[in-house]
């Protein structure tokens, strides 16, 4: 409510207790290599989509882990599944499968919600 000419600012903090991390857990179970990601960003540097549109696979992976799912859901379909990210990953994360699983999980959640 803008009663006094300003609105009360919202907390920027990631509230770990409040967030749901079931999507990250679902992916970790099906694709355990997701767990060894160290956020080096090699995937994002090589990503065609990321170089021309505001899309960072590195950012989406960390947001998934923290349960900040909204941004991931809104952006994950921008990936064209070319597989270059998986090719360059030094930790051997199957990023391509992580993306597919994330899409699947979001769809299932939407279905379940319906």
């Amino acid at each position: 409510m803008d009663k006094f000419g300003f609105a009360i600012s919202q907390q920027r903090q990631i509230d770990f207790e409040a967030n749901r991390r079931d999507i990250a857990e679902y992916i970790s179970e099906k694709e355990p290599s997701f767990r060894v990601c160290i956020e080096c960003g090699c995937c994002a540097a090589t990503c065609t989509t990321g170089n021309f549109t505001p899309f960072s696979l590195r950012e989406l992976l960390i947001l998934l882990k923290r349960g900040e799912n909204d941004k991931v859901r809104d952006n994950i379909n921008k990936c064209m599944l070319c597989g270059k990210c998986t090719l360059v990953c030094p930790r051997g994360v199957n990023t391509r499968n992580v993306i597919s699983l994330a899409r699947e999980a979001f769809q299932d959640r939407i279905k379940n919600a319906v």
Partner: peptide
């Protein structure tokens, strides 16, 4: 600055 007061009150609220 009035525009920033939402930040100020948010601190007290926290």
């Amino acid at each position: 600055v009035q525009a920033n007061r939402g930040f100020s009150v948010a601190c007290s609220k926290e």
